[in-house]
Write a protein that binds this DNA or RNA. Structure first.
Lengths: 161, 161
DNA sequence: CTGCGTGCAAACATTTTGCACGATG
DNA sequence: CATCGTGCAAAATGTTTGCACGCAG
């Protein structure tokens, strides 16, 4: 069921092979679902989505696959302070390639924003290059979070109890 | 034991009062410790540090206090993918006010970096103002993470197993 | 045919919660 | 002196692991 181009294997096959990993149904289905679903999903949300196409899957496999993909840099493991991780595709043909969030520290609402100016893009590239040089890192991705209090929570006042 | 200025109460008293919270020994000690310890600490690391000054403290109180401080925006709850949260002071007289991390997706090593150019500072301020206007958020903090593969892990090759 | 990957269930770790007592303002 | 906050222990939750079977390469 993975969506493919006019023909040939899905784009992620070379990622898996390059890492010495086998191509299996659970991996294909998880990647397929992530690649066509924008947003951040918890492991059990992914579990339920995958189960609809592949009912015999186990939750442990979902966790193992997500960790694998995360170690490959294909998937981004996120934490918004809810006590469980969330995941999103980090790399892919249709990925915009940046993950910028506005997170409310009271209600944990998350807003994705996409706006990014040319100036920012340039500066970002510069910063990444400096970091790579200085620390010997091979940077594959980034995530910018802004924390604050959302409109609704501001209206509730400053009491924190 | 909290370190105070020449006289008068520690700087965080007004934060607590402003939120309608009482000033108690556990809260004072946790804030005191965080404010003089740079770095990111897990709940139980903080628990052990606090216990040395205040042995009767319970781990639950540490969690409750950290959540409180996090909701106030005084403390930053971080997740580097280790399966437990880490905390650091977000606001305070000596806080540099930015939390920028370089995170290895293989070994989860975290490098804090402090370098930030004037150009970046300006742009950041601009971006924050735009976001506040556009989404009605009151931004209190931010965190920038760059993900990649550290020098050591690069040497181990691409196999991810 | 040789491992690697999977499903299941049990184990683990961290974090949260209920309750009765004690401290704060 | 009325609550709010705390300590303890138990519970809940999310995530990891051990093992035997099955499939990819």
């Amino acid at each position: 069921m993975p969506r493919r181009g006019p023909m040939g294997p899905p784009w992620w096959h070379h990622w898996l092979r390059n890492c010495g990993c086998r191509i299996t149904a659970p991996r294909e289905i998880i990647l397929d679902i992530l690649s066509r679903s924008p947003g951040h999903f918890s492991a059990d949300e992914i579990f339920f989505m995958v189960r609809q196409m592949y009912p015999q899957i186990g939750l442990a496999t979902v966790y193992r696959t997500l960790e694998l993909l995360s170690n490959m840099g294909l998937v981004h493991k996120l934490d918004f302070g809810e006590g469980k991780a969330r995941y999103e595709l980090a790399q892919g043909p249709e990925t915009k390639g940046h993950h910028h969030h506005l997170i409310c520290i009271r209600c944990h609402k998350v807003i994705d924003y996409e706006e990014i100016s040319e100036k920012e893009k340039e500066l970002l590239k510069e910063v990444e290059e400096n970091l790579e040089k200085k620390y010997g890192f091979k940077i594959t991705d980034h995530m910018f979070n802004f924390y604050g209090i959302c409109k609704e929570c501001q209206e509730k006042g400053d009491e924190v109890k």
